[in-house]
């Protein structure tokens, strides 16, 4: 399905990090004109002249149908469908600025995984609050940027209550190398997509500590259980958790050395400190932030999330990995499904 009503329209991508650029490349490779907003002039020039984005996707050549711009208003002015791929911490500000020029028939999709600090809003909720758009969706799934740039097959989920959003994004992104699934449960897709980054850090820590596969499987499975609890309390469909944006993304993130969150965890487990690790990384590991937000979100909803708590303590309270592990292993025994204590 084509969303282009006028010849000069393009698909908009806001954010020139590795994921935003990868999305722009995917869209362009499918024959769409893509307008990509990036913050820095130099980066825009590089993308337009050399078709590369060396800082975020070193070594890859981008499709020449991508046009980069630093003028944010170009995006709402020229694009009928817009994907937002900026970090959670700046999404609100950027969305508000885009919102000055948006119209109600445009499609707005969040491609950012995360939750807003303090408010615990999901990214699509932020879009709803900062723009007049109603046709809003969220894109999530096991989508490691480099694998996609390498042309490897992958699948993703677009979640929206509006069929039109699902159909449009499917039409734009689907290709022999990318399968798109739809989901109506936008709450679930966004929540698990954000929260699974915490588990990626947790298994990274286990790897760094030299723990075996039993321990990792335990962390992942029980991690999913606590994510489900939070998700269901927030209105998610529990089945979404076993879908691509939940278990799917978790398998990719938690087993791949490419994942930034996994890297942070591994280095923590090896004994490095968080400030040192973050200083040496170009890109943001969203799980670091999400762990803090999820920790207080769980407290607000009155949900017990011991693994999230452990990761939070490790990242933000300076506790040692072996202490956190001892805490987790030393908890009273429970029934697996409903969590009631074994007397």
């Amino acid at each position: 399905m084509s969303v282009r009503h006028r010849g000069d329209l393009a698909i908009g991508v806001v954010g020139g990090g590795s994921w935003g650029t990868t999305l722009a490349h995917l869209l362009a490779r499918n024959g769409n004109d893509v307008l990509l907003w990036v913050r820095r002039k130099g980066q825009a020039t590089e993308i337009n002249k050399k078709h590369t984005n060396e800082r975020y996707l070193p070594g890859y050549t981008l499709d020449p149908r991508i046009r980069a711009t630093t003028r944010l208003e170009d995006i709402p002015y020229r694009c009928q469908a817009i994907l937002m791929a900026v970090p959670p911490s700046v999404l609100r500000e950027v969305a508000f600025r885009v919102g000055d020029h948006l119209r109600g028939d445009q499609i707005l999709v969040s491609a950012t995984k995360g939750l807003e600090d303090e408010t615990f809003y999901r990214m699509s909720e932020v879009l709803q609050q900062e723009t007049c758009c109603k046709k809003i969706g969220a894109l999530s799934g096991p989508n490691l940027a480099r694998e996609i740039m390498d042309g490897q097959p992958a699948a993703t989920v677009v979640a929206s209550r509006f069929d039109e959003v699902v159909e449009t994004i499917d039409g734009l992104l689907s290709s022999p190398r990318m399968r798109v699934y739809g989901n109506k449960d936008i709450v679930g897709v966004e929540l698990v997509g954000a929260l699974k980054n915490i588990l990626a850090i947790a298994t990274g820590v286990a790897t760094g500590m030299g723990l075996g596969d039993n321990a990792k499987a335990f962390l992942l499975t029980r991690g999913l259980a606590e994510i489900s609890r939070l998700g269901v309390a927030a209105g998610a469909d529990p089945l979404t958790i076993v879908g691509l944006s939940g278990v799917g993304d978790m398998i990719a993130t938690c087993s791949s050395p490419l994942s930034r969150n996994h890297q942070v965890g591994r280095r923590l487990g090896e004994g490095e400190t968080l400030p040192d690790i973050l200083d040496s990384m170009v890109m943001v590991a969203e799980g670091v932030h999400t762990a803090r937000v999820a920790h207080s979100y769980a407290a607000t909803l009155g949900i017990d999330m011991p693994i999230t708590r452990g990761v939070f303590q490790l990242l933000h309270q300076g506790r040692a990995a072996h202490e956190v592990l001892e805490d987790l292993m030393g908890r009273p025994s429970n029934y697996e499904i409903d969590g009631t204590p074994i007397p």
């Binding site: 508000f96 919102g99 119209r103 109600g104 028939d105 709803q128 609050q129 900062e130 007049c132």
Partner: peptide
């Protein structure tokens, strides 16, 4: 929600 006018026909 930010008080800007919307063209609802869209």
């Amino acid at each position: 929600k930010r008080g800007r006018r919307i063209d609802t026909t869209r």
